[in-house]
């Protein structure tokens, strides 16, 4: 069996349970003082990497988590290492900087890949904060690797990977040779809980720090946010007395 070196890109996003609020300037979603956690889809991909190691003991050589973001992103990396990654790479961005767009993230990840030399990348299919769902595909394109989007089952045999994908109205099975990029869907597995002792142990694992300036190839953000607003509040419905009332109301509204 070929040795697997797995890279797991993760993102620290606003916690799924938090209701996002638009900031007063209407330029973005309020992030200061809001609870953050690892993007749920990334949690699933970390779990899958660890599961692969449990299944094929000697084959998995290395599991590296990588994240791009402000200093606090280290928390997400620690959670990843608490679940079972061996070490991690943190590409630090300035605290107040705009979030990177998928192409930029993919270009940076590509250079991390060239440095770490993994042959399998498992990442979440999208992050729950900006919902682009593009980084993985772009990364695979830039690297010229095969890709499988929305994986719900992964099996490794030698250097071939069989991935069951969730598509509309059924499943799709794809087979490919390593190296490959796999993007995890919701039903791939159930992520384990990062326990307190494991989080403590993860503090001893290595985090390589890198700066955005360390990367030669970079793109600029191309999108300009004009305005961010809350969705309109739903107008309450009214009640009608009886069937006649309903009919006359429908006629009034022009539905009949």
């Amino acid at each position: 069996m070929a040795s697997l070196r797995i890279l797991v890109p993760v993102k620290r996003a606003i916690d799924y349970a938090v209701r996002p609020r638009v900031n007063s300037a209407q330029t973005a979603v309020e992030t200061a003082g809001v609870r953050h956690s690892m993007n749920p889809f990334d949690e699933i991909s970390v779990e899958e990497a660890v599961k692969l190691r449990e299944k094929h003991k000697s084959a998995v050589e290395d599991i590296v988590a990588v994240s791009i973001g402000p200093p606090k992103t280290v928390e997400a990396l620690r959670t990843a290492m608490a679940i079972g990654c061996d070490r991690s790479v943190h590409v630090e961005t300035p605290e107040a900087a705009d979030m990177l767009e998928p192409l930029q993230a993919a270009k940076i990840l590509k250079q991390v890949v060239e440095r770490e030399k993994p042959n399998l990348i498992i990442m979440g299919k999208q992050s729950i904060d900006d919902d682009f769902s593009q980084t993985g595909q772009m990364l695979a394109g830039l690297l010229g690797w095969g890709q499988a989007y929305g994986a719900s089952e992964i099996s490794v045999d030698g250097d071939t990977l069989t991935v069951r994908r969730e598509v509309d109205g059924g499943t799709d099975v794809v087979k490919g040779k390593l190296p490959m990029v796999v993007m995890a869907d919701l039903r791939l597995n159930t992520p384990r809980f990062a326990t307190l002792p494991n989080i403590m142990k993860a503090k001893k694992k290595k985090v390589d720090k890198m700066k955005l300036e360390d990367f030669k190839e970079r793109a600029e953000n191309r999108l300009k946010t004009l305005k961010v607003a809350e969705p309109p509040v739903r107008q309450g419905g009214g009640t009608v007395e009886n069937v006649d009332g309903l009919i006359s109301r429908l006629k009034e509204l022009g539905a009949l």
């Binding site: 799924y16 349970a17 999208q126 919701l186 809980f193």
Partner: peptide, 18 residues
């Protein structure tokens, strides 16, 4: 408690992303 957390998370994600 762990099961409670992972279930609430799964349900929330399923509702949002199917």
């Amino acid at each position: 408690v762990e099961a409670l957390y992972s279930l609430t998370k799964y349900r929330a994600m399923k509702k949002r992303y199917g």
